[in-house]
Design a protein around this nucleic acid. Structure first.
Lengths: 386, 386
DNA sequence: CTGTGGGCAACGTGCCGACAA
DNA sequence: TTGTCGGCACGTTGCCCACAG
């Protein structure tokens, strides 16, 4: 095994992305990004299950978004739970450097089309009584072909997880009617990863034809870290103080992004941010669509209406673009969906894009101009109700 | 079961203290304490296995020790590992209030003498092949007496853990020669708590005669939290920024103390701190003794010599009493013992105590006077070698 | 007094096709 | 096509004592 003990770095970016989910994107090293302390705080809140309720020190030098260059990014997975997270080191950039960023491309790691399948585990899959029932298409798509002339057709499967550990399974085609199964080796995998019915398992094939597998725990898996190490207050302060110190001294700082735990991405490619903030006309009543992850790990577009524009937190973060849109959703099953989204998350349905003739002009001002009404005519309470 | 799901608060202080170890003391609510950001940082370092290596922002208002009143303390145990920790809310106190603190008593929760026993688990205890071998004295001391006239003498034992969960065991006295054993129920306990040979299990009897049990994992259990939530840098900053903000605004702040993970206690009763700093004569060459926890969870006094006096971190924490003594140990097996200790941890062997006639005078100056040579005549390098 | 190991019975694990959704 | 079940074999768990350190 090539893995150094205690090394949690993940080698395989594609597998990491599959485990993170279909909507997660990663900026590339060297690209420019907008970092949102507010969003980072939300990740802390989601993980500690505690809102920031204390009175925080003010950090006058810390704007709602900090423009940075991505100095480094490494992918990781928790040794116990296999939960994926990314460590990013960000270098705040000065005003002059920002113009350079316009030259850069979208700054997102291109997702190679992958041969993969995922399955939500059933009670039978996770019971000690039997093995794993492989969906037919999955067996055809990603597993090495079986010799169907033999009775029964069977082979040994070897797959590696995020930690590069090998897992061996017996893949057999039997039963009446015939079906693909993983038998020997499967239960060890289930108990080692502590999988339960409802969790998702994921198989994929890389460029060299090697098999990889990952897991994604069901959302109910409230990581519920009471942390026992740092109080949630200290964590909130730590997030802000680290960013403020980095901004003030123009020095690098390091953050963790946890795609399954965080309500939203909070490190946004600058190009995407600029496009949404400067080149998109937004108004109350406007209709939009937004991609969201479905139960079965694919994506679906949902339609909604903008019902208000204004600060999420007028006291602590005035004039912030973070979740500045209050929205309603068309479908009545919208109980779980966010009631506030950010500009860069949505796709306006009917509004024309403003063509960017001389975009560098728009970036001259130190802070982006606010869209109509932001933090002025509409407070977070004075919004339309759908 | 009376426990609310997700509630991690521990009701039984005595059991918590037993699990924390024989040397751990807790200040009582309302008492005055000295809080050491340095020591708090050390706990973070030990838990994240990373030293503070970045350049930190300076917090001019944050002295090496912050005098506080203990506003609140709650005891907890990790839901997964049963690791004990305490949450303390501290209220910084102003100069005038400090004098009051002299009236207060020692401010430590009195440890009631408890009927308990602990045992380091053997390979047989944790193997799936058998049960748990109860030491003879333990069976006599804490378990309900058996009716030895029956053959074999046996009874059901019910004990509650830190989470107030009930555990049932069959206690039987059999074999040739006769011995006490826990059979049915024991292996479920072992696998649930994931106990291994070398870990310690602990039984005790409370005032009402109810049985309690706790566990203490062997030190090798490197909690090894890479955290995945906050970078270690942010944690260090969070500790300092939270304390600095509390000191500056005179507001309460919350910290976690993890007695098994932290190298030393960093919330010290003010009376103990004052006595050590102001009323104890310390000099290089002086011999002292210090209590330390032994392998089998009892305590032992070790003898050593002070080999130097000076700042542990002259840059970040000048004039700090935290681990200001460099020491050597008499016994050659001193490999693991601290090479630096704080004044309040030791007991001078031959030096006389200075009688305190008018102690309030000594507290007038805003910062305690430094002992001879502290940070002046001896740097951390210019020390004696034993 | 107590840790380990052999003997043995009871139980759980895990592979199989049958059936039905 | 695939989730769950009854049947069955075999490996593990767990209770017992013997023995020795």
């Amino acid at each position: 095994m090539e893995v150094v003990a205690g090394d949690k770095k993940v080698q395989n970016t594609t597998l990491w992305l599959e485990c993170a989910g279909p909507l997660v994107t990663l900026p590339v090293v060297g690209s420019y990004v907008a970092y949102f302390p507010q969003g980072h705080s939300e990740q802390v809140a989601a993980s500690t299950q505690k809102e920031a309720d204390m009175q925080f020190p003010s950090y006058p030098n810390l704007p709602p978004q900090l423009i940075c260059q991505l100095y480094n990014i490494t992918l990781h997975a928790d040794q116990e739970t296999d939960e994926v997270y990314a460590q990013m080191t960000l270098q705040p950039v000065t005003g002059q450097e920002k113009d350079q960023s316009l030259m850069s491309n979208l700054g997102i790691q291109t997702k190679e089309p992958t041969i993969s399948f995922s399955k939500i585990l059933t009670a039978s899959d996770t019971s000690t009584h039997g093995g794993f029932s492989i969906p037919r298409r999955a067996a055809d798509k990603v597993f090495p072909p079986l010799d169907y002339t033999k009775q029964p057709p069977a082979q040994e499967i070897v797959a590696r997880d995020l930690h590069n550990n090998e897992w061996h399974f017996r893949h057999i085609f039997r039963g009446q009617p015939r079906r693909h199964l993983l038998t020997t080796g499967w239960s060890i995998f289930v108990s080692s990863k502590r999988l339960q019915a409802g969790d998702t398992v994921l198989f994929m094939r890389d460029q060299n034809g090697h098999l990889l597998l990952g897991i994604r725990c069901a959302k109910r898996q409230q990581t519920a870290i009471p942390s026992s190490l740092l109080s949630s207050d200290s964590m909130f302060i730590g997030v802000l103080a680290a960013a403020a110190h980095a901004a003030a001294t123009n020095s690098r700082f390091t953050i963790f992004y946890n795609p399954r735990a965080s309500p939203s991405e909070f490190v946004i490619p600058l190009v995407k941010y600029n496009k949404a903030v400067f080149h998109t006309q937004i108004s109350v009543g406007m209709r939009f669509r937004m991609e969201l992850e479905t139960e079965d790990s694919s994506t679906r577009r949902y339609i909604g209406t903008i019902t208000g524009i204004g600060d999420l937190d007028p006291i602590r973060w005035p004039n912030s673009y973070w979740r500045s849109l209050k929205v309603g959703w068309d479908e009545s099953t919208a109980g779980q969906r966010q009631r506030r989204v950010s500009l860069w998350e949505i796709e306006p349905l009917s509004s024309p894009f403003i063509v960017c003739h001389s975009s560098s002009l728009l970036l001259r001002s130190k802070r982006p101009r606010l869209p109509q009404g932001l933090g002025q005519t509409l407070s977070s309470e004075e919004v339309l109700e759908s």
